[in-house]
Nucleic acid binder design. Structure first.
Lengths: 219, 219
DNA sequence: GTCTATAGACGGATAGAC
DNA sequence: GTCTATCCGTCTATAGAC
């Protein structure tokens, strides 16, 4: 996988002083190997030896750079989560975007994030169950979700929809956008699809989901 | 990894006649401790010593009854999965039940199964990703799903819905029924609900989901 | 910075007493 | 059937050469 080492250009060795050109550092090789393995198998099923050999470096280097396996895990986890939480928060909190437009952007965000890495979502849920404290909202996220929630409540009030709790709308949105990525291997196998067809289906959902959400919100 | 072979339990069928009277046998104590811990944390995060102490028995007994940790795991997994797969298959395959009635029964089935044990669904998905071979359908399931799928296709043909793949209907159904159980801890915390309120919400969905599915299928 | 070699702890499994 | 004691491989972490 990621062991792409760009060959330094032999004709101008002199200019290689600052490293922009060439090798991925050992630290980065370890990080990306760890990200891959931890995300696929979790903390305990992955041994430091696995990471070292996947990264093509020596076992001792892992401790040299990251002190311990746990610290490396924490680092990977934090990187996996923060970028993701940030983009969702920004989207939810946008006061000037229409609800259904927001829903479409959310679908697309997930498609980009999870379509290329179906294991990540499962990893996130495992983390959420095992280390819920990592998901305690910062002020930013809390406020952002309020914005989205208010948009939903306003719409329901306007449409006079009273018989269901607004949380159901939120659950349905989350379910329809995220769950298919968890079912990825399952659906692929059952429907006898290859990766490309599967991705095409998931991409269709980016525009279909807002339509379904409209239907659910307009009885 | 090691070949986990699902072995139907033949070992203690005969011995069940005794014991109604009093104490739970050591074997059962181990099984229920293992079920709890494996379901919560997975195979590798659980140590045999954890199981022994949770069960209140000695470490050696675990091997005495189950030969090895992995065999115990396989046993627990098999018990978790087979009952569940069976009831879904029976429901899907019922030729005489209307599609939306079937959807309502499915919602209810999941409510009963996962409402009382939110960790189980996550466990199932982890297993699905790590040991997909355990989910290869028997003939029964394969045929059952065909029955359901045909009902969906027939309805879509009748309603002249052409712009979406029938698989989306299946994905939406699965998403809306199952995903909220995965989000359980998340939703509870965000919406500041207690367990009872949360369960009430999930129970509402049993009747709401068929209605939403109707809306999605009737543009 | 990167390697080899190894210390030291942990965890699964078993021998053997009762 | 149930226990204690222990074996032995595996794993993380580190010492020390280069």
């Amino acid at each position: 996988m990621t062991n792409i080492v760009l060959c330094p250009n032999l004709s101008n060795m002199a200019s290689v002083k600052k490293e922009q050109v060439s090798k991925v550092s050992a630290e980065e090789k370890i990080l990306s190997a760890a990200r891959k393995l931890f995300t696929e198998r979790g903390l305990h099923a992955v041994k430091t030896r696995d990471i070292a050999s996947e990264a093509g470096i020596n076992l001792a280097l892992l401790n040299y750079y990251f002190r311990s396996k746990e610290m490396l895990y924490a680092r990977v986890m934090s990187e996996n989560l923060t970028g993701f939480k940030r983009s969702v928060s920004d989207l939810f909190g946008n006061e000037n975007m229409d609800l259904f437009e927001k829903i479409e952007h959310l679908s697309e965000l997930y498609f980009l994030e999870f379509g290329s890495n179906p294991e990540l979502l499962l990893f996130i849920f495992n983390t959420m169950h095992q280390n819920p404290e990592l998901f305690l909202d910062g002020d930013g996220m809390q406020q952002s979700r309020m914005v989205l929630f208010k948009q939903i409540e306003d719409l329901m009030k306007k449409k006079k929809i009273k018989k269901m709790h607004p949380a159901h709308v939120m659950m349905n949105l989350m379910s329809m956008t995220m769950f298919p990525y968890l079912m990825f291997p399952f659906i692929k196998q059952r429907a006898k699809l290859d990766d490309a067809q599967m991705l095409a289906l998931l991409k269709d959902r980016v525009t279909l989901i807002p339509e379904w959400m409209k239907l659910i919100l307009k009885p």
